[in-house]
Write a protein that binds this DNA or RNA. Structure first.
Lengths: 105, 105
DNA sequence: CCGATTATTCGCCAATTCTAGAAGGATAGG
DNA sequence: CCTATCCTTCTAGAATTGGCGAATAATCGG
């Protein structure tokens, strides 16, 4: 992953509201969750939520699939895995300080 | 790690300049690197650099130790490890999709 | 104490972000 | 076609962020 892509994804997750959205979607698992249900769960105005969801989609951390009138959001696990791998690689470059994490990379 | 702390750290890393600063410090290893050397490496005005370094220090991702007139910066590996652990935990909650990463947590 | 070196803080501006109400587009049922 | 539902886009204002020159602080050698 390029450093600018990593930065963009970190920035997307670096907002408490968006991080909560993402976490909720991860916990929803493969089934995903419609925007409307995210809204009742997180108590966020629709326009604000849509704004944040769009930001997460634009960096590839989540995706959306339409089902009738509802838009179901899914966490994109591969993207997150790539991001974690990037952090682990940065964290452990040259010096082997993050041994536990390194075994994962 | 609390979700707001994680968000603050992700936000700190979510700026290309700051991510480069952090990466440079990680690669400098335990010896760390003075602010001045970061400046020549990254070609950033001193005031801008100091601004970003302060942001990274404030969330605990790096620390500074004075040595005479120079301030040596060090990556705080434990903080990064905690952040990666948080992401892995979020990423793999409920569904076991991030198996490689999970083995690290 | 003085000057040199190193880094931070101040002040300012442009640009972006966050938030959210209001309006608009997409889809389905009747 | 009309209406309801669901979500996005538009619009706008407050707040924050990023960037950087200039001024200020901290430290050391002499």
């Amino acid at each position: 992953m390029k450093i600018d892509d990593a930065a963009a994804r970190l920035e997307a997750l670096g907002n408490p509201t968006r991080l909560k959205i993402y976490r909720t979607l991860v916990r929803a698992g493969r089934a995903g969750m419609p925007v409307g249900r995210l809204q009742e769960r997180l108590k966020i105005p629709a326009s604000t939520l849509s704004h944040h969801v769009k930001a997460l989609v634009s960096v590839g951390l989540i995706s959306q699939v339409r089902e009738g009138t509802t838009l179901v959001c899914h966490a994109e696990y591969d993207t997150m895995r790539g991001l974690v791998d990037f952090l682990v690689a940065e964290c452990c470059a040259e010096e082997k300080q993050c041994k536990e994490a390194q075994t994962a990379a």
